[in-house]
Design a protein around this nucleic acid. Structure first.
Length: 157
DNA sequence: GCCAACGTTGGC
DNA sequence: GCCAACGTTGGC
């Protein structure tokens, strides 16, 4: 049941977890997602090998800053069991976890961050989920042609 | 720091 | 099951 490769965009605040953190760690669990739609993408849709646009949000110049890759099957987010942590989920049990996540591995950091403002101005990206009004979902599907275009913008000298 | 747009919660 | 109130996200 090998499906075609899929593409995603995942937002992170760089003071929480940045592309440089991922570069250092090589691989990391995507902890702390507490939105059902984002969880469902990780739990039901993502496949090992899918590529990720790594996006920095809540900064002066929001931008896609690099690429990652889905590196695991979904598994329970351990932070939901940490009673004193901010991600604690009282409805969750070990048998029935509420929140699942996948591991993301580092692929590359862009030479040129692709700014949100330049993506908005780019006709080729006019249908991107990210650019839709009111869109704040932290994990979003990305079309292949959008992914390839952003990758070329980010990596060209 | 503001605030629009969403998502979640909880009373009824 | 509705919906008002509240909380959060995230660009500006």
């Amino acid at each position: 049941m090998a499906k075609e490769k899929q593409y995603w965009l995942m937002k992170s605040e760089p003071n929480e977890y940045s592309i440089d953190d991922l570069k250092r760690d090589k691989k990391s669990g995507w902890f702390g997602v507490r939105n059902y739609q984002a969880r469902n993408y990780m739990r039901d849709a993502m496949q090992i090998g899918d590529l990720i646009l790594f996006y920095h949000s809540s900064v002066k110049e929001p931008a896609v800053v690099g690429i990652g890759k889905v590196a695991s099957a979904p598994y329970p987010d351990k932070t939901q069991f940490e009673k004193s942590g901010k991600y604690f989920e009282k409805r969750a049990t070990k048998e029935k976890p509420v929140w699942l996540l996948v591991d993301i591995s580092y692929v590359k950091k862009f030479i040129n961050p692709v700014l949100l403002s330049s993506m908005r101005a780019d006709k080729k990206l006019k249908d991107m989920v990210l650019l839709k009004r009111g869109m704040r979902l932290s994990i979003q599907p990305v079309a292949e042609k959008e992914f390839l275009h952003i990758e070329s913008l980010g990596t060209k000298k």
